[in-house]
Design a protein around this nucleic acid. Sequence first.
DNA 1: ACCTGAACACCGTTCAAGT
DNA 2: ACCTGAACACCGTTCAAGT
Lengths: 241, 241
Amino acid sequence: MVFVSSPLPDPPRRGRPARAAQSERTPLSRERIVDAAMAIVDAGGLDALSMRSVAQALGTGPASLYAHIADKDELLALLIERVAGELELPEPDPERWQEQLKAMVRATHYGLLAHRDLARAGLANIPLGEGALRFSDRMIEIMRSGGLPGQVVAYGCDLLPLYAVATAYEQALYAERMTTEEGERYIAEIGEYFAALPADRFPNIVALAGPLVAGGGEGERFEFGLDVLVAGLAAYGRGGW
Amino acid sequence: MVFVSSPLPDPPRRGRPARAAQSERTPLSRERIVDAAMAIVDAGGLDALSMRSVAQALGTGPASLYAHIADKDELLALLIERVAGELELPEPDPERWQEQLKAMVRATHYGLLAHRDLARAGLANIPLGEGALRFSDRMIEIMRSGGLPGQVVAYGCDLLPLYAVATAYEQALYAERMTTEEGERYIAEIGEYFAALPADRFPNIVALAGPLVAGGGEGERFEFGLDVLVAGLAAYGRGGW
DNA sequence: ACCTGAACACCGTTCAAGT
DNA sequence: ACCTGAACACCGTTCAAGT
């Protein structure tokens, strides 16, 4: 009876919409949830991410997600963890430890910015997953190779990622709110606003109006802070200032 | 006809609840809205702040607020601006410019923390109100008095408040989620977790487990970063490194 | 164990209508 | 000009019920 065992497509069912591909039929998992969530963030920013939008992308209802993740906060932590796990780690070279340290901070900063305003969720948790730990371990190793004392290394391990995330946070907010062009116009307008302020009450802002909004764009501003931090840490390693 | 002009209390009206005091009868204004919003944040944290909770505190409905403020983002900006306006500014003394700079960063950090987790709203806007401008003007003046070049002053004016806010942001999140005691226990647990990690895969974290979670509490951690930043800026002033 | 529909208790914002 | 009630289009999370 060949007919019996031959595979047949599911008969159409009334009131049930056809589902796209089989992906929506495979069982839910943390990984699939994080995949869908990241795709939503990449497409529409963090505001587009909701338990409901993730559920919809997976062809189910929001309640189903709670069998796999505790709450939305955990989902955000998993997204951050995923970014951390994808960052490239330099092979330690003691000769170049400061430059390598900077490379790790840049990787974090731009790695976050690659996912719209995901950085907004980056200050909320100490990431303790596998990827974040590998990142931290490497960062410690590189600072150690520069001869920094233990407590400086420990604090530096907090301070540098804090800087990477906070700057990405700020930049991402503006990137979400306006185009690059609009952003440049906005910065220019602030410059004019500063210059037009009453000089008797805000003499220092008026005098510095140009440089306050200038510097070669966000990149240079970011690099300046990075220089200050890494050089500051290095100075501690040489025995204070 | 004396009776006619004699003042009478309003007759009781059916279906209209008595209102507490007269405050709810005075007309709405930005200031009253910000007052009410700040009181809500101080009492219940940023999560307790909604257009609805503010309206309720003012004895009206949420729609009424929109005659005075554009949206919730503007309300948050006004709250940050209020904090900025209340920060104490040091009288510039060129002999002590680095210490004064630190005092301004500390004032910002702890000024934010005085309002629960309001710092969570502090990275979203460049505050351009009167109070924020006075603060910035003074900060520029003090950095200038230390002989720092213009572009360093300009960048520093961004970098230092960013540090003050980002650290307050992080700390406030934990303060909202747990008591000081629970926080200490959590930190201790992370320390144990670090120490118990497989030493072959995370040798540097394991080796540094103690210092990573130690250092005399948040205050010392904050001061460390502040030292690094101010000393780093000062080094730029002396002609780079 | 995993998934679901429905509900609960909220949001920010808009808008026509009132004064 | 200022304020309001009601509605719109959402939220995160819970829970009893299903398989």
